[in-house]
Computed example of a mutant assay.
Amino acid sequence: MKLIATLLAGCCAGMTAQAGALVDLSAEASRPVTNDLVRASVYSEATGKSAAELAQRVNADIAEALKLIRTKAGVSVKSGRQSTYPVYSQAQKIDGWRMRSELVIESKDQGGVSELLGKLQQMRLAVGDVSLLPSPEARRQVEDEATREAIRAFRSRAEVIAEQLGKGWKIKQLNVQQGGGMPMPMLHATRTAMLADAAPAPAPLEAGESLVTTHISGQIELAD
């Protein structure tokens, strides 16, 4: 057992002695990506004395909205936030109820969504938030390009350091982080509520671009 322990200790000491200096490095690359997807929320909201009557009214509005949205090709829809809460009087007693139900729509057809939102407002629905963002496939493609560029930058920095020190090098650790490409808000609930009566259709949407960034951090080991 003593012999085995001695051999293991000698092996570990040899490995430590052969290890080179460690250097921490980082690099990043950013690429623009077109905001080719529009996401918008519409909602029905009502206040009254009976929660059951409110639910019937709001659900009817949402059902009618779903019928219209589902006739539009290339538009997806899903349920959003739903809430029912009491309205209190000055005496802090329940004086009524307020109910809100939301739908979230997404499409690459920005002009079609703008037209659809106008029709939905005419059906007594209000527009919540309208945002433009990259579609998952567009974002993924640009992320891959930014990742390739960031890795090339990381390797280039590693080669400069190793060359100046007259050393070889190898990667010991590498971390990849993606960022950017967040939704760009176009309209908010407060503004669209104010404009609902005066302008049933939102202004034309300008897609613009988002910036996708890949950050590479890691560690290299220098060797003779």
Rank of each mutant, 00 (worst) to 15 (best):
G208C: 11
L174V: 08
R191F: 13
Q173T: 15
Q178A: 02
T213L: 00
N175V: 03
P200H: 05
L211I: 03
K172C: 00
P204K: 15
S217Q: 12
I220R: 14
G208W: 13
H188D: 07
R191K: 05
T213P: 00
G208Q: 15
E206C: 03
A196T: 09
P200Q: 04
E206I: 15
H215A: 06
Q219H: 07
T213S: 01
A196Y: 05
G208H: 12
L211H: 04
L187G: 02
L205W: 12
A193C: 10
E206P: 00
E206Q: 07
S210E: 05
G179F: 01
P185F: 06
T192D: 03
H215Y: 11
A201P: 07
A196Q: 07
L211F: 00
P185M: 08
G208T: 14
G208L: 11
A193D: 10
M182E: 15
G181R: 00
M182Q: 14
I171E: 06
L205E: 08
T190D: 05
L174K: 09
L211G: 00
M182T: 09
K172E: 09
L187E: 06
G181M: 02
A196H: 10
T213Y: 01
A193P: 05
Q177I: 12
A199H: 10
H188T: 12
Q177R: 15
G181Q: 00
A199M: 11
L187W: 01
M184S: 11
A201W: 10
H215S: 09
P202N: 14
S217K: 13
A189H: 04
L211M: 07
Q178C: 01
V212P: 01
T214V: 08
Q173A: 15
P185C: 08
E209W: 03
Q219R: 13
R191S: 11
V176I: 15
H188I: 14
A196C: 04
Q177T: 12
I220Q: 09
G181N: 01
T214G: 01
Q173L: 14
Q219G: 05
Q219T: 14
G208I: 08
T214C: 01
V212G: 00
A198S: 13
T190V: 08
S217W: 04
A196K: 12
M184E: 08
T192I: 07
S210I: 03
S217I: 03
